[in-house]
């Protein structure tokens, strides 16, 4: 009896505040926009019955998504930005994780804390910090002009470059930590063995270290890719009018155009796109757990 109550409390909470809302989003994505409060039709009412209600739902909004260039371009461009920034984060993060794993063991707790500290600091503030650095009169341009490297300010803020910098910067700890965890577990004698058997240091790294840290690389990449795909704050603060990302489109569809049915359809399609990487990530984590046991 007590067990049933214990299970029921978090279960019902999640059903009511996680699952049911999705059903509502799905339902509204099949509705029509209307000048009403709330701004969509049909509203469900018991008098008219379920069948009458269902017959008014249709896939019009999804057809609209395929017809208007804006949406599929935004999905494609989000995918492109998410993939590139994941690769960039990996290229920046791997050497850092590698350096941490090779550092003397008494340094490691401090290095770990230095990686985790930005993660606890407000995301919004970390993105905002780059606005002051990248703007035309910002710190970076003043510095480069000052040392005479450039003669005209670089335009970085409000471009896709700024979005890449923002994503790499804010998600870097998510990449470093799993790779570091994998490298930390790595048995150093394997690399020595490879070197004894005639591998150069570089090929030992390439043939032994990288494959053995594969799980960390995969986990880190998903941890960056999945949230980057639906990112809203970074493109809206660092990106420009040319930066198309689906999180921003959804936000504007909802808050500016007040087209809730289309915003809901955008959300459902984004969710369908995300299902694939989320399932792959889950599999990778399960495999890792099995390997550990």
């Amino acid at each position: 009896m007590r067990r049933a109550v214990l299970i029921a409390v978090p279960y019902l909470w999640l059903l009511a505040l996680f699952l049911v809302p999705f059903v509502i989003v799905f339902k509204i994505s099949l509705s029509d926009v209307a000048l009403a409060r709330p701004p969509y039709l049909p509203q469900f009412s018991w008098d008219e019955g379920i069948l009458a209600f269902l017959s008014e739902l249709d896939f019009e909004n999804y057809i609209f998504l395929t017809e208007d260039d804006l949406y599929w371009k935004a999905y494609l461009s989000s995918l492109k930005i998410a993939v590139f920034s994941t690769v960039l984060t990996l290229l920046v993060g791997y050497p850092i994780a590698y350096g941490m794993a090779r550092a003397p063991s008494e340094w490691r707790p401090t290095l770990m804390m230095l990686v985790i500290l930005p993660f606890w600091t407000s995301f919004l503030i970390r993105v905002y910090a780059w606005m002051g650095i990248l703007s035309n009169e910002g710190f970076l341009n003043q510095f480069l002009l000052g040392i005479g490297l450039i003669s005209e300010p670089l335009i970085i803020l409000n471009t896709n470059t700024a979005v890449y910098i923002g994503i790499v910067y804010t998600y870097l700890p998510f990449m470093i930590l799993p790779i570091y965890a994998a490298l930390d577990r790595l048995d150093g004698s394997l690399i020595e063995a490879a070197e004894d058997l005639g591998c150069s240091r570089l090929s030992a790294f390439w043939l032994v270290t990288i494959p053995l840290s594969k799980n960390g690389i995969i986990a880190g990449s998903f941890l960056v890719f999945i949230p980057a795909l639906g990112e809203f704050v970074i493109p809206s603060l660092l990106g420009g009018s040319g930066t198309l990302m689906i999180g921003k489109v959804l936000w504007e569809e909802f808050f500016s155009n007040r087209d809730w049915p289309v915003a809901s359809a955008v959300a459902v399609v984004l969710l369908l796109i995300l299902v694939i990487p989320i399932v792959l990530f889950q599999r990778n984590q399960e495999k890792q757990q099995e390997a550990e046991q």
């Binding site: 999640l14 059903l15 505040l17 996680f18 699952l19 049911v20 809302p21 999705f22 509502i24 989003v25 509204i28 999945i226 949230p227 795909l229 639906g230 990112e231 809203f232 999180g247 959804l250 936000w251 909802f254 809730w260 915003a263 809901s264 959300a267 984004l270 969710l271 995300l274 989320i278 990530f281 889950q282």
Partner: peptide, 21 residues
């Protein structure tokens, strides 16, 4: 599934769905 899904859910979707609820 309901425990793990919110961890990877884009915030815009979570926000939108809760508001509609």
């Amino acid at each position: 599934g309901m425990i793990y899904a919110p961890l990877v859910m884009p915030e815009v979707i979570t926000g939108l769905s809760l508001l509609l609820l």
